[in-house]
Simulated scan of single mutants.
Amino acid sequence: MPLHTPLPSNVRHGLASISGSLFIQNKTTDCGEHRSYHTGNNFSHEVLSSVPLQMALYFNVFFFPFWFISEVIMLELKYFLLPGYYQFLLVTAVTIITVIEILRLYLGYIGNLHEKVPELAGFLLLTFLIQMPLFLFLLTDEKILILPLELAVHVIYVIFLNMELLVSFFVLKIMTRQLATQFYLQKTDDLENKNVPAKCSQVTIQRSKRSMIGLQDRDALMY
C-alpha cells in the first residue's frame, strides 16, 4: 500500500519538472504512483532506492528526538542570558527546524523507498535551503552562547545533513533519468501497439481488393 504524500499535486509536478530540467534535457513528470514498465524491448524495472541514504535517514530519525531534548534544555539554561532579539531568533529557529525536520524525514523515506522523484526533490530542497542554513547559524554564531552539548549535537546533525545531501543528489539524478527512460520507452511501446492494428487493417484491405479483382477476372473469363 503506497504511503500518503503530504505534497499537493501542483507542488509535486513542479518538483518533478525542476528535477527533469536539472538532470535530463526532455522534461517528464512523475504521476505519484510506483510503476514498473515492461516494454517490448524487455526493459525491466531496476531498484533505485539507496541503502546508504536509507541508513542515514534511519539514524537521523532516532537522533532527532535526542537533539530536540538537548536543544530545549540548553535553550532554557541560557535563555535569560541572551538579548531579546536573540531569544526570538533561537525560539523561531528551533521551531522551524522541528517542524521542517518531521516533514523532511518523511519525504525522504517516501522518496527513497517508493522511488518518487517529487518527494525526494522536496527532501533535497528542504535540506539545502532551510535546515542547513539554520543549523550553520546555531553552530557558528558565538553571540547565542553555544554550550558544549549544543556544539556536539549540532556537529553530528550537520554531518547527517551533508551525507543526506550528497547521497540524495546522486540518487535523484539516477532516479530521474531512469524514470524518464521508462516513460519514453512506454510511450514508444504505446505508439507501436497503436500502429500494429492500422498496418494489419491496411494489409487486410489490400488482400480484400486483390480477392475482389481475382473474382472479377474469373467471372469475366467464364462469360
Rank of each mutant, 00 (worst) to 15 (best):
L7S: 01
P8Y: 00
V11D: 09
H13E: 07
G14R: 06
S19K: 03
I24E: 09
Q25I: 09
N26D: 15
T29P: 01
Y37E: 04
T39F: 01
N41Y: 06
N41G: 05
N42M: 00
L53P: 01
M55G: 05
Y58P: 12
F66E: 06
W67C: 14
K78L: 02
Y79W: 07
Y79A: 03
G84W: 14
G84D: 12
Y85M: 04
F88N: 08
L89M: 15
L90R: 12
L90F: 08
T92V: 12
V99M: 10
I100K: 04
E101Q: 15
I102S: 15
L103I: 12
G108K: 07
Y109A: 10
N112F: 05
H114Y: 13
H114D: 13
E115P: 02
E119F: 03
L125R: 05
F128V: 07
F128S: 12
I130C: 08
P133R: 09
L136T: 13
L139R: 05
T140R: 10
L147N: 03
P148E: 00
A152P: 04
V155M: 13
V155D: 06
L161R: 05
L165P: 03
V167W: 07
S168G: 10
M175R: 00
L179I: 07
A180S: 14
K187L: 14
K187Q: 15
K187W: 07
D189C: 03
A198H: 04
A198C: 04
Q202I: 05
I205S: 14
Q206K: 15
K209V: 07
L221Y: 07
M222R: 09
Y223V: 10
Y223S: 14
